[in-house]
Design a protein around this nucleic acid. Structure first.
Lengths: 151, 151
DNA sequence: TATTTATTAGAAAATAAATCTATTTTATAC
DNA sequence: GTATAAAATAGATTTATTTTCTAATAAATA
């Protein structure tokens, strides 16, 4: 389904989606139209989901990152649905995964600072019904963070 | 530094960076030039870090996601530097954070399936020197996942 | 081999980005 | 409160890019 050229093209687009088709055609040794058609196909097939601007969290006062493990008091469908609904509403939560292991969920939280985190915990996260317990881990340093999947 | 228009603009660009300046100008009630200049400024100030294509992991056989806690045997500078270096080299690791708590690191791993994960653990992660212990959590369901920071 | 289908190339048309000049708004000093 | 400077904006123009079109080539299928 994806040939080598597609993979190389996706690598380039995952790194910088603002490159012109001309630049990409140069890089991959194809015509502009070939690149254009390939990209359109990848978009239509939903291989490429969207194009976004990535912003620098340190520049927008969201440099404090934490991961929280969350356990529900019970795992009835109702509780699960409700919890997940609330999580999706909270802007501070960028990611939330239902995971295997001791805890039920792992969430990634972005806020300004420790004070804002405390606020988030007290006023938002733990206000959600049916939360049993939570365990927070603070990011000391971001060693690696990419959105680019290697194919 | 960022006014309300900038914030609304960033929200739009974080959702879809392929919108034309004309469409954005319409949305925000400004001229095309005003939008153009604002975007250029946000780029120059490094508020906008980059533009990327986000690809669909389910379409490229990378649907298996796991988080691994990693503990080093020791925390001497050498060991830390070496570990972080190796992590950055591994394509399966998309994110790695040095975190507070029982473990030293939290890493996010993307592979094809459980078999590939086992392979990754045995042949790559645990081959890195000085790793004390690891603890893996598998993603059962992705409840929320966005790159857009709310300002 | 013949026939269809998909991919590619190059040219033309349509669209958008980038630049320029003039005007307006905002901030600062007097 | 007014004058001045600086920043932001609008509209027009130029430049570049995307998109479409036609034809040619390559790959797949009967």
């Amino acid at each position: 389904m994806l040939d080598e050229i597609d993979k190389r093209l996706l690598k380039l687009l995952q790194t910088d989606s603002k490159q012109t088709n001309k630049a990409l055609s140069h890089e991959l040794g194809l015509s502009v139209t070939a690149i254009y058609e390939r990209i359109k196909k990848l978009e239509n097939n939903k291989v490429i989901g969207k194009y976004v601007a990535l912003i620098n969290k340190k520049k927008v006062e969201k440099a404090f990152v934490a991961f929280c493990h969350v356990k529900l008091v019970q795992h009835s469908q109702d509780y699960v649905i409700k919890f997940e609904q609330e999580v999706r509403k909270l802007d501070e939560i960028l990611e939330c995964y239902h995971i295997s292991g001791d805890y039920d969920y792992l969430i990634k939280v972005l806020v300004k600072d420790m004070e804002a985190f405390r606020d988030f915990m007290v006023k938002k996260l733990t206000k959600i019904d049916h939360i049993g317990s939570t365990h927070s881990m603070f990011v000391i340093n971001e060693v690696k963070h990419t959105t680019a999947i290697t194919l």
